[in-house]
């Protein structure tokens, strides 16, 4: 029989950064019993983007005088090669877009600029990026290139659960990624690791239900994958969205902060769209990078430490002066802990 206490709690990982923030913001995190410990996972796309990939973007923009189009969260992430924000202060154009299709519109309106859209995100963002690629082809936009750095969640979960030092009893699985990929895809991975998981939405009620269902599975040792968000998540996901992804992208190995290199855990443009691939059009040498000194973001995304365990948290590293991406990104665990949790373990 399980017996849980605050010394030996049930350890639940909320995989998705949006869940991390919503659990804090709605106050649900603070109303859970002390024998339930929530651990933030790797589901923050900016946080898991490897420094070398961002450094490459910066090198390409400098060397080939590119206009960079990006989601706002990427702007302040620092590498040894600078950040996109610092690129801007050097005089390069760095524009924030709300959606990948906005990048197509921008390139169309600025035919004298060579533009690169930095396409990051999990499966949730990929259909939208695919629509942008489609649109760039249909409109015959010749001055837009895609730096594709998408990440795929199931292989990352497999890698995460395969690392020996994971001490997790169950997973809260992301509602939005699952809207695209469905429930079934998790099953072989979680069952192989004997790990229960519950796909959960983002309102307080959704999250409460998801956590209750997951606790029930943990207590009864049932390694099942339940869908507590059936109004949005279908068994096999969204077929049109998956079709868009498959038409324009294919799996490739990817570097993840914290998790290292994982085969088939990323996506790149299919070879027939090579002419739109920024890495083909603007080759640069592989940069040598090191994570920011003292930053434990790699361990934070693995859930092996809490943000407050980082010696820089809240002192040297704050949202106004972020050292690592987990504090920069609005989905980052360090940002959530700083904004809602203060300096204590919660």
């Amino acid at each position: 029989m399980w017996s849980f206490s605050s010394d030996s709690p049930v350890r639940i990982m909320e995989v998705c950064g949006t869940h991390t923030h919503e659990l804090f913001r709605t106050g649900l995190r603070f109303s859970l019993p002390p024998w339930v410990k929530l651990i933030s996972g790797p589901g923050c796309p900016v946080c898991v983007t490897d420094d070398r990939d961002l450094a490459k973007v910066i090198m390409m923009a400098r060397e080939y005088e590119l206009t960079v189009l990006t989601f706002g969260d990427m702007l302040k992430v620092n590498t040894e090669f600078g950040s996109l924000a610092s690129l801007r202060s050097e005089g390069r154009k760095v524009e924030i877009v709300y959606s990948p299709v906005d990048a197509v519109t921008y390139a169309k309106q600025h035919p004298d600029e060579r533009c690169m859209f930095v396409s990051v995100g999990f499966e949730t963002t990929m259909p939208s990026a695919a629509v942008a690629v489609k649109e760039a082809i249909e409109l015959n936009i010749g001055n837009l290139f895609f730096f594709v750095n998408h990440k795929l969640l199931p292989p990352a979960l497999d890698a995460l659960l395969s690392t020996g030092d994971m001490d997790i009893d169950g997973l809260i699985l992301p509602g939005h990624v699952s809207a695209i990929i469905g429930r079934r895809v998790y099953e072989p991975i979680l069952l192989r690791h004997g790990m229960p998981g519950v796909i959960t939405g983002f309102t307080k009620d959704h999250m409460r239900t998801g956590i209750n269902l997951l606790l029930n599975l943990v207590v009864h040792h049932e390694a099942k994958v339940l869908n507590a968000y059936p109004e949005v998540v279908q068994e096999d996901g969204n077929p049109q969205a998956k079709e868009l992804i498959e038409k324009y992208f294919e799996p490739t190995g990817a570097h993840w902060r914290g998790l290292g290199f994982i085969p088939n855990s990323g996506a790149k443009l299919r070879p027939e769209y090579n002419h739109l691939d920024a890495e083909v059009a603007f080759p640069v040498s592989e940069p040598m990078v090191h994570p920011p000194h003292g930053c434990r973001c790699g361990d934070v995304v693995l859930g092996t430490v809490d943000p407050v365990d980082c010696p820089l948290f809240g002192t040297v590293c704050t949202p106004q002066n972020a050292v690592g991406p987990c504090m920069v990104s609005s989905e980052g665990a360090c940002a959530a802990w700083y904004k809602y949790g203060g300096l204590r373990h919660v």
């Binding site: 709300y98 959606s99 990948p100 949730t124 259909p127 809207a179 949005v232 969205a241």
Partner: peptide
């Protein structure tokens, strides 16, 4: 809607 695309 996610990144400008309706997903569900």
């Amino acid at each position: 809607v996610h990144a400008g695309l309706a997903i569900s």
